[in-house]
């Protein structure tokens, strides 16, 4: 869908993006991650053709990115806002017309979306009369109204209460199901794990990690297991295929973190502890995206 190749962007003496490449698959939800100032916004602006790269190129469905693609992209910027004095219906029509929709078509679709989000009665309200959350909903409608093939969402959940965040999340998933590719820039790692198929991590103008969420997490597995049981303390001798990394107990409740030796079988842990008491929990410890993110960024620094 979108192929980003060797992008370099220089602002004066500051290099915002240094040889950044990534592939975004058709129909995927792609997480663009990175700490503040890493270069995410610069990259998004280049995809939106707000600025142009100094070198490198972007292919949209195999075609070099050009002005005709603008109408096929929807963009919800992190720093968002609308004209405060304008009425909301009129304003979204205006934004939609800038994306190439006709007035009638825009009006029809806005009515549909407003109904869906339960905000039909707002049509003649001015933006300044609305709460922050309401403004965000309106802006979300403006972003997706022209049914873009590629939707770029920069921190889409900021400013929403949990209930409305859920509403928006479901709308995003539905858009994706209907064929839209979504680029999702965020710091909220739990939403990354929930939504994203693939991610790219940018730090200090460089891409430092890219891949499918499942694969990345796979490579970060290190044979660590968490075990909870009630019973007596287990004596572990050197012959066992694992070592105890951490041990906590309150009364006869034990909570252990175990490191399985390379090539060892997880079942051997279970069989070892089955004799010691009643096992209530056993799972492989896979690092969260948050941990991977922090770990990767710290490695770089």
């Amino acid at each position: 869908m979108l192929s980003i190749r060797n992008i370099v962007k220089q602002y004066g003496s500051y290099r915002a993006l240094d040889d950044v490449s990534m592939e975004i698959e058709q129909g995927s939800i792609f997480g663009l991650l990175g700490p503040n100032g890493a270069g995410k916004t610069s990259l998004i602006r280049i995809i939106n053709q707000i600025t142009a790269p100094d070198s490198g190129e972007i292919l949209f469905n195999g075609q070099k990115l050009n002005q005709s693609h603008i109408e096929r992209i929807g963009y919800l910027p992190e720093e968002r806002g609308l004209y405060k004095k304008m009425e909301i219906g009129e304003q979204i029509i205006y934004l939609a017309r800038l994306k190439g929709l006709s007035t009638d078509e825009a009006r029809r679709r806005i009515k549909m979306w407003f109904k869906k989000l339960g905000i039909e009665s707002w049509w003649n309200k001015k933006i300044e009369e609305l709460s922050k959350g309401m403004q965000q909903k309106a802006q979300f409608v403006a972003t997706v109204l022209h049914e873009p093939e590629l939707i770029i969402l920069d921190e889409p959940f900021s400013g929403f209460d949990p209930v409305n965040a859920e509403v928006i999340k479901n709308e995003i998933l539905e858009l994706n199901k209907n064929g839209a590719t979504i680029i999702f820039s965020t710091h909220r790692m739990e939403s990354v794990e929930e939504l994203c198929d693939s991610i790219a991590l940018i730090n200090k103008s460089h891409k430092i990690l890219e891949g499918k969420v499942k694969d990345i997490k796979g490579t970060y597995r290190n044979n660590t297991y968490l075990l909870e049981y009630a019973g007596s303390k287990a004596e572990i001798n050197g012959a066992a295929p694992f070592t105890v990394v951490e041990e906590n107990n309150t009364g006869d409740e034990y909570r252990l973190k175990l490191q399985l030796a390379a090539g060892g079988d997880a079942n051997s842990i279970l069989s070892h502890f089955m004799a010691k008491g009643h096992i209530s929990r056993f799972e492989e410890v896979i690092p969260t995206m948050n941990e991977i993110f922090i770990d990767k960024v710290n490695q770089m620094n």
Binding site: N48, I50, I70, G81, L82, Y83, L95, Q139
Partner: peptide, 16 residues
Amino acid sequence: IEEKTSRVIEVIISSV
């Protein structure tokens, strides 16, 4: 300045 402070600018210039 209004477009800049209300942050509508980025939405607009992703279209024009």
